[in-house]
Structure formats: C-alpha cells, structure tokens
Design a binder for these strands. Structure first.
Length: 648
RNA sequence: GCCGGUUUAGCUCAGCUGGUAGAGCAGCUGAUUUGUAAUCAGAAGGUCGCGGGUUCGAUUCCUGCAACCGGCACCA
C-alpha cells in the first residue's frame, strides 16, 4: 500500500497509508481531537471525516470552533434532518435538493398541499426529536444505475432526474441520517446529535420552480437559519429586527418622503421631503456628468410602435411595455405608441441627425430619462423595483477601440460618485455571452476582455456571471445591498453593437467612409428610485447633511422666542440651508423627540437665553446633549457641511 | 406571472365559534410657556381593500378581483 504525506497547519508533516480517513488522522494526533473533530479541510476542500484520503496535501482538522466549516456542516445536516422530518410527518412528500445559503439553508419539496406556516412548528419539533435521537451519519459511494434503481423503487422522480443529470461514469455519494437516506456530495457531521437543537429556526415557506425553470413544477421551499449556539441565533434575529427598521418603505413613511397607492402600482408619489433628496441627487449628478464630458439631452415619452419595431424591442418586450393608443373615435388616424421603456433608441435618433465624424467620438449622451416598464406584479418592491422610474442614463457612441478606455473612465467616474454618496462596499459583476446570442465568438472574446481589462485597470475585482449577458453583448453590473443584504444592481455598463446596426447609426471615419459606432449603455445610479431606496436603507434614514431633506429644525422653547426662531430660519435659508421653524406650543422634549424620529440631522433649540445672546443651542441627531454657539458661527459651519461634496 | 401570507381610523394594532367595531399615537379644540427623545383634558374620526354569494343578519363563512409582504421566475 502506498504512503501519503499530510502537512498540518503548524507546518509539521506525517506519513499515512493511502486511504486513511480524516477521522483516523485526527485520532493519530490526539484522543481529544478525535472526539472534537467534525470534518477536515484538505488543500482547501472541505472533506468528511469518513472519506479515505488518497493523495498527499495540506490538511486541517476542523472542530466546532472553526466557524466556517462548522456552520456549513450544521446547516447542511439540518437540511437533511428537516427533509427527514418532513418525510416522517408526510410520507408522500417527494424530496429534491437542499443547499446551504447565507445564515441557513433551504430544501425544496414536492407536495400536493403547500406547507402552512403552522406546519413549520411541527417540523421543527420533529427535527428536535431526530437530533435528540443522536442517530449516526454514514456514507457510501454508489454507481449511477444502483442510485437510479433505488430512487425509482422509492418513488422519488426528482432524485432520478438529478442522478440522470450527473455525468456518466461519475460515482455518487449517498448519506444516511439514521434510516433516512439522501443523495449528497457531503461532507456531513458524524451524528445528528452534534446539531444544536436550540440554534436553528424555520423561517418561512415559499414556492420555487424545480431547477429554477418556470416551465417546470412549482415546489414548496422551506427556509431555515442556523448557528452554532443559541446566542448566535439570537444575535441574528436581533440583526434582522434592526434591519427591518431601516427598510426604505418604513422610513419613507416615517420621514414623509413618498407614498405609493393602488391606483398607480409600481409608481412613486414623491412628497416634498423625498423630492428634495431626488433633485439634490439629480443636481449633483448633472454637475458630475458635465465634468465627465457628457452632453445632456431629453427625448419623448410616447413613441410610435414603428421605432420599437425597428429597435427590436417590440418583438422581444412588447408584453412589458405600456401601450398607448389614442381614442379611435376621436382620432383622425389610429396610431399605436408605447411609453418608452428605455432611452437608447431615442438617443440614436439624436445621434443620427446630421453627419457625425470620428472626431465626435466618443460621444457621451446623457439623459435623466423617465421610463415605464410593465414589470410583473410579483417583481415590484417598494421604490426599488417599480414600473415608472428615471434612469441616470447615458449612451457612449464610440469605436470598438474606445470600449476599454471608456469603460475604465466610467468605472472611475462611478467609483468617485459612490464614494461621495457613502458607499465603499460594492461589487462588480461581469455577465458574459449567453447561449442565444448574435455576433462572432472572436468579437465576444474581444469585448469581454475589454470589460475585464478595464475593471482591473481601474483597480476593481469582479465576479463572472457566466451566460448572463444580453444577446448582443456583455455587461458590467455594479451591485449594492439593501438593509437585509439583498443584492440590487444599480450601476451598469453594457456593450451594444446591435442597436446602432438596427437603427443605422454611422459616423465618417478618417478614411472618409461610413462606419458603425458601438454603443455603451451606462448608468451610475441605475434609477433614482432604486438608488434613493438603497441610500435610505444604507444610512438608516440618517442621510449626510447635504442630502437630508430637512437639514435644520429651529424649535422654540418658549413662545417669546418665536420671533428669533423665524430670524434664525431666515438666516439659515439665506445661507442656502433647508431650515424649518417649529414654534408649536409643545415642550422642547416633545419637539426633540419628534424631529429625531423624523431623522432631522440638526435641531436648534431656542429659548430666552439664546435670544439674548444671539446664539443657538445645537443638537445633532443621535448625539446626547447640545452645545451653544453664536448664530453666525453655527451658520458658517453648517453651510460648509451642507455643501454637496463636489462643490466643497 | 407562479406559490404562500396579509389587507380593520393618518400610523401601529385588538376584535372567540356570524348580531353593522375598539385602543394607543398622530390630527382637531382648549388649558399649559415649557431647557434637549412623549404636558394634561375634551370632542371627533371607520362603506372593516373592492365586487358577488350563503344567511333573517357578514368585518367574521364561501367566491372572484386588486394591492401589498416573503420567496420563485423576470429585470432590454
């Protein structure tokens, strides 16, 4: 039998016979390690204690103290235990898959009757019984035919399909938790008794399509969260409660920013406070775009079907467009139009007026473009996914050689803006060629490389979303997260050689001949609606002073100070600060509380002392206490802080 | 669009098995002139999401629709 050499984290090595299991390795080191071991990490791969090790490598034995492997095992084993519990409670339920995800796991079941929220309690109780039984976990390697025969006999059609999707000749691993068995690549714990019965919770049920395909059956998905101990679970639940307080829908109401109503689903009624954020952000973006070499245009909302047919959108997206028809009885002729779902075809129309020279490229054409899309009802989400929105859109008409430098320039532009707006953590995703696509592989190679190079040159890593690009070109997505960690695409840059072709855009090159430009669709914020939603959640409503809709409230303590309050408000307003007076007949405690809850960054309290000294007592949001400052000094400080970052 | 849940006053929520609704806060009126996160009192406020059905009678039961919430699918 051949020998293998295993290197431990401390650098020491030992030789073992090939086929030694990680459990045996642990036992060879110390009895206590053998007792506490839960899995091993071999050359970066998480492996089961029961698997034979066939080749040399770097090994680490994991215990419950190693958070990442421990959590993975706990969540993965709980997925199996939950599936077992479900089948014990309802033997006719078919099992499918159950992966680990952030904070927990889910498992998809096929069942005629959906699970009710009440069922979750019964399942949890059954899971606790299984854990208390301390059943051993064991594993075997099977070949495909045996697995298929087994699942056909067991009446598990989804498992049969899964096995059939695994490449020929590849062995399959089976796991048993007690008598209950599942197909699983592992690794797992050694006994259900190792699971923390008080550190998991089933959170919700939801429908989910089999294999993520909406033409396949809808399964019942149960989500759970799990941690190593009760305190970690409790901390997680507390974190979720805190995150719920940052929800932009809740803050939008509390700060009186906007509302939405049934008569206009997916569209925003902006209130004065919310609209102040919107226009402040728009003014800022307009200044930045001018500096960034963009020209701004504006194009029609209602555009004939003809243009959408030419652009190809009618064919692909008709059911997602708001169709506008004039009343046939009153109109002289019947026309069919659509509210524009995007600005690009209109921008090409602007580009196409007059001859363009290569000297005009790159031509960066921007519009705060209001678009309407009939999004599926289930996709709507507060102001983050809406049917009526305004993009900070621009199209860069350029040559293929200019794609890379323009992309790099754009990423730097976006990074500067995100930094100004308080975002340091954002992800870049590169979506590459999909199965159904146009254009040659060589051209895709060039353009994908250009985007990747530009990213790296700008100093940003990106993750690849294989096959997620548009049919005509790859794209970059710039992703921010909301209060509870959901990803939202905000910025984007998309390469499009297709639309200039379809809409016959051209420029005269150095050679005097007509050439086809490439279009880069790009947005920094994405839409004002989504971005403001993210902005609210990431700041928990406490926006930086320059973006805060109400920057200062001047509150009287006694009504004899009312005149001075109005003088202070006038002076602040004169200095360009958004200030309001609160001279209501209420106690200062009441006013401080109310404006603090309304996330007003600065409260100035004014009583007779301040009147006499021409001072103000300044209280900052979330800070205890206040300080008394001469009025002129206070205004100078605040005026500076209230200046948008690009103007400081 | 699909699966599940929800919808009662401006907001947050009560309302057992059917007998036309209740609280706190906000708003209104009055008193109080107050020093940094809720002053007191009074009056008022609801087609119980919308439509249909069962019933002597429906906020409650059944049904259709809509919006919203959580997922799934979608996101040019």
């Amino acid at each position: 039998m051949s020998q293998i050499s295993l290197t431990f984290p401390d650098g020491a090595s030992r030789d073992y016979p090939a086929g030694t299991t990680a459990a045996e390795v642990a036992a060879s080191i110390a009895p206590s390690l053998a007792r506490n071991a839960i899995s091993a990490t071999l050359d970066g791969n998480h492996i089961d204690l029961a698997w034979p090790i066939q080749s040399s490598g770097r090994i680490a034995i994991n215990t419950m103290k190693d958070a990442a492997p421990a959590l993975e095992l706990i969540r993965h084993d709980l997925a199996h235990v939950m599936a077992r519990a479900v089948q014990e409670l309802w033997p006719d339920v078919k099992v499918t898959i159950g992966p680990v995800r952030d904070y927990g796991w889910f498992y998809d079941f096929d069942r005629a009757e959906p699970f009710t929220p009440e069922d979750l309690g019964a399942i949890e109780a059954k899971m606790k019984q299984i854990i208390a039984a301390r059943d051993p976990v064991r594993t075997e390697v099977w070949d495909r035919d045996r697995a298929i025969a087994h699942y056909e006999a067991a009446g598990e059609p989804f498992k049969v399909e899964l096995v059939n999707r695994i490449p020929e000749g590849q062995d399959l691993r089976m796991y048993w938790h007690g008598d209950w068995q599942d197909l699983c690549r592992g690794p797992h714990l050694q006994s259900t008794g190792q699971l923390p019965a008080d550190a998991f919770r089933l959170t919700h049920v939801a429908g989910a399509y089999w294999l993520g395909d909406n033409t396949r059956p809808m399964l019942q998905r149960i989500y759970g969260v799990a941690f190593r101990n009760r305190d970690e679970l409790k901390a997680h639940m507390t974190m979720l409660e805190e995150a719920a307080k940052r929800d932009h829908r809740k803050l939008g109401r509390e700060m009186d920013l906007f509302h939405m109503q049934e008569e206009a689903p997916g569209q925003v009624f902006w209130h004065p406070n919310g609209w102040t954020i919107y226009v402040t952000l728009q003014d800022y973006m307009r200044r930045q775009q001018r500096r960034g070499g963009y020209v701004e245009v504006n194009t029609p909302q209602v555009v004939s079907r003809k243009l959408w047919e030419e652009s190809g959108h009618w064919e692909n997206y008709q059911e997602n467009m708001f169709i506008v028809e004039v009343d046939e009885e009153h109109a002289r002729e019947k026309t069919v139009n659509a509210l524009k779902p995007m600005n690009c075809p209109c921008h090409v129309q602007v580009f196409n007026v007059g001859l363009k020279s290569y000297r005009d490229l790159p031509l960066r054409m921007a519009e705060f473009g209001s678009c309407n899309r009939y999004e599926p009802s289930g996709a709507l989400h507060g102001i983050m996914r809406v049917r009526g929105f305004t993009q900070d859109d621009a199209h860069i008409f350029c040559t293929e050689d200019q794609i890379e430098p323009e992309t790099k320039k754009f990423i730097e532009f976006l990074a500067m803006i995100y930094a100004d707006l308080g975002f340091d953590n954002w992800k870049v995703k590169l979506s590459t060629r999909p199965e159904k696509r146009i254009g040659s592989d060589e051209s895709w190679d060039r353009v994908e490389a250009a985007l990747g190079n530009a990213c790296r040159a700008a100093g940003y890593d990106y993750e690849i979303q294989d096959g997620e690009g548009a049919f005509y070109g790859p794209k970059l997505e710039f992703v921010l997260t909301d209060a509870i960690g959901r990803d939202w695409q905000c910025g984007t840059l998309q390469v499009d050689p297709n639309l200039p072709e379809r809409l016959d855009a051209s420029y005269i090159g150095e050679d005097g001949q007509k050439h086809r430009p490439v279009m880069l669709h790009r947005a920094v914020l994405g839409s004002f609606e989504r971005f403001i939603g993210i902005l609210i959640e990431s700041h928990a409503g406490k926006l930086p002073l320059w973006l805060a809709p109400r920057q200062v409230v001047v509150a009287s303590i006694v009504s004899d100070a009312d005149d001075y309050v109005h003088q202070v408000v006038a002076a602040l307003t004169q200095a360009g600060i958004r200030a309001e007076a609160d001279t209501r007949n209420e106690k200062i405690n009441y006013k401080v509380r109310e404006h603090s809850l309304g996330k007003v960054p600065v409260i100035m309290a004014v009583g007779m002392k301040e009147v006499e000294g021409r001072t103000v007592s300044i209280r900052r949001l979330d800070q205890q206490g206040s300080r008394v400052v001469p009025l002129d000094e206070a205004i100078a400080q605040l005026a500076d802080e209230a200046t948008p970052p690009d103007l400081r």
